[in-house]
């Protein structure tokens, strides 16, 4: 439990120490066995070559996954919007949280090293091929394997604290007992077909029940952020799953 507590405390401390006006809900942290069989199926499931934890760190034992949920106030503001999902606050949180994720990773790497544990990882963003929009390491996939969430119809990770937030993962050569994975869908659509808000709100029509056209989404995002140093689009995060999951 000691290693698990150390990791969780570092993540919590870094999150709580972020300067105002940024504030976050409690991080959701999970651990996956680096040799989990699911990693071997990811390439086939995702459709492009995926790294194994041992590709990032030869003696990998555990994958640490941490999701930093955005504050409730931001979530409610975005959920209330019915018209145009462009918010400076969303972009600000995206940028600040990416820095937080990197800071957490750096601190984990440093402090784990002090107790003889090596850690390695991919950055939280800008880790994809800009031509075919694919990444070799999926933080979301690791999050599912680590039991902290499931994929929604919106192709986002939905955790018990919802989908609004940012994610990162780190491979370590120390052992932490894997988080139990229940596989119960957090997404209302997959649970009982009762929600398709993400699909109906997607401004570019890239998201449908059949899947997501990431090139269409990406082109829309480029246009929407064409001169505004904004990031992303919260429309597919604006449904009931924004702030909570529905597995229970």
């Amino acid at each position: 439990m000691e290693l698990e507590s150390l990791i969780k405390n570092i993540i919590l401390q870094e999150t709580e120490n972020v300067e105002a006006p940024f504030v976050y809900r409690t991080p959701v942290v999970g651990f996956a066995d680096a040799k989990d069989e699911m990693y071997r199926h990811l390439t086939e499931i995702i459709g492009n070559p995926q790294l194994l934890p041992t590709d990032l760190l030869k003696e990998a034992k555990t994958v640490v996954v941490f999701f930093i949920p955005y504050p409730e106030k931001l979530g409610k503001m975005i959920q209330k919007e019915k018209d145009i999902w462009i918010f400076k606050e969303w972009s600000s949180y995206y940028l600040r949280t990416n820095k937080l994720l990197s800071d957490i990773a750096k601190r984990l790497i440093k402090e784990l090293d002090q107790i003889g544990i090596i850690a390695a990882g991919e950055p939280p963003t800008d880790n994809y091929n800009p031509v075919n929009l694919t990444a070799k390491w999926g933080h979301k996939s690791s999050a599912v394997i680590a039991g902290i969430g499931t994929f929604g119809l919106n192709h986002l990770l939905i955790t018990k604290s919802g989908t609004m937030g940012r994610l990162n993962s780190l491979v370590i050569d120390g052992y932490v007992k894997p988080t139990e994975r229940t596989n119960k869908p957090q997404c209302l659509y997959y649970k009982n077909g009762s929600c398709k808000i993400c699909v109906s709100r997607c401004p570019s029509g890239a998201l449908t029940e059949k899947g997501i056209d990431k090139f269409r989404c990406n082109a829309y995002l480029t246009g929407k952020n064409v001169h505004f140093t904004g990031q992303g689009c919260p429309a597919c995060s604006s449904g009931p799953c924004a702030l909570k999951g529905f597995a229970d």
């Binding site: 145009i84 462009i86 570019s204 890239a206 090139f215 989404c217 082109a219 480029t222 246009g223 952020n225």
Partner: peptide, 16 residues
């Protein structure tokens, strides 16, 4: 497809 999506994005930003 790209041009259309890009334009929707630009129009959306301008409307905002």
């Amino acid at each position: 497809k790209s041009a259309y999506s890009y334009l929707i994005g630009r129009y959306t930003l301008a409307a905002r």
